[in-house]
Computed example of a mutant assay.
Amino acid sequence: MSAEARWLTMTEERAWRGLLRMHDLLVNRAGRSMQEGFGLSATDYTVLAELTRAPDDRLRIQELAQLLGWEKSRVSHHLARMVKRGLVAREECADDRRGAFVVVTPAGRSAITAAAPRHVEDVRRYFLDHLTPGQVTLLAEIADLVIEKNEEEH
């Protein structure tokens, strides 16, 4: 690390702070909509969405943590709350006694099936409808690149 900090330019700071503010705004709005309409937090919805994309609606807990970009302890704590509410269940892994799977329950499947149309509507209303198709494509490319480069370093 160099002795002198590479301070952000005004435009770089605006981009960074704007990204953080936009993320918080969108997550809060979409989360509030999910909570009010379906009793799901934004985090619940994200977990259920990842699980329902997986074969047989199940993933190892470590795989889920990787997909979400969360520490394993955060995933475990959140899953414990979801288990209590009947949205997911833990299953032992027959091949590896140390590992466990998390699987969507019928109640969890029902919850995400009911919530998904509103979620898509919210994504459009709060985010996509304000952008041109070219901006959406550019943002997707930027996100892919930043994620890829950061995963390479990690």
Results as ranks from 00 to 15, higher is better:
67 L>Y: 11
67 L>P: 01
67 L>T: 07
68 L>R: 00
68 L>K: 00
68 L>H: 02
69 G>F: 01
70 W>M: 04
70 W>A: 00
70 W>K: 03
71 E>T: 07
74 R>I: 05
74 R>L: 13
74 R>V: 07
74 R>A: 15
75 V>C: 00
75 V>M: 03
75 V>D: 00
76 S>W: 01
77 H>D: 12
77 H>K: 14
77 H>T: 12
77 H>Q: 14
77 H>P: 01
80 A>S: 11
80 A>K: 14
80 A>E: 10
81 R>D: 14
81 R>T: 11
81 R>W: 11
82 M>N: 04
83 V>F: 09
85 R>E: 01
85 R>F: 01
85 R>Y: 04
86 G>H: 05
86 G>S: 05
87 L>Q: 01
87 L>F: 11
88 V>C: 07
88 V>I: 06
88 V>F: 02
89 A>P: 06
89 A>V: 10
90 R>A: 03
91 E>L: 10
91 E>H: 10
91 E>I: 03
92 E>F: 04
95 D>S: 14
97 R>F: 07
98 R>T: 12
99 G>V: 02
100 A>D: 02
101 F>Q: 00
101 F>W: 09
102 V>Q: 00
102 V>R: 01
103 V>Y: 02
105 T>M: 05
105 T>C: 04
107 A>F: 02
109 R>G: 00
109 R>V: 00
109 R>L: 05
109 R>Y: 01
110 S>C: 08
112 I>N: 00
112 I>L: 10
113 T>Y: 08
113 T>Q: 15
114 A>V: 04
114 A>M: 08
116 A>R: 11
117 P>T: 04
118 R>K: 13
119 H>S: 05
119 H>Q: 08
119 H>W: 15
119 H>K: 10
119 H>F: 15
120 V>I: 12
120 V>Q: 06
121 E>S: 11
121 E>Y: 11
121 E>D: 12
121 E>L: 10
122 D>L: 08
122 D>T: 05
123 V>Q: 11
123 V>G: 06
124 R>L: 13
125 R>M: 06
125 R>D: 13
126 Y>S: 05
126 Y>F: 15
126 Y>E: 14
127 F>P: 00
128 L>H: 09
128 L>R: 06
129 D>N: 12
130 H>Q: 09
130 H>K: 11
131 L>Q: 03
131 L>V: 03
132 T>P: 01
132 T>I: 05
133 P>I: 07
133 P>Y: 06
133 P>D: 06
133 P>L: 07
134 G>F: 06
134 G>K: 11
135 Q>V: 10
135 Q>K: 09
135 Q>C: 06
136 V>L: 11
136 V>A: 10
137 T>C: 09
137 T>G: 07
138 L>Y: 03
140 A>V: 06
140 A>H: 04
141 E>K: 07
141 E>C: 06
142 I>E: 08
142 I>D: 06
142 I>L: 13
144 D>F: 07
145 L>W: 08
145 L>R: 12
146 V>W: 07
147 I>K: 13
148 E>R: 14
148 E>L: 13
149 K>S: 13
150 N>W: 08
151 E>H: 12
151 E>Q: 14
152 E>S: 08
153 E>T: 09
153 E>W: 09
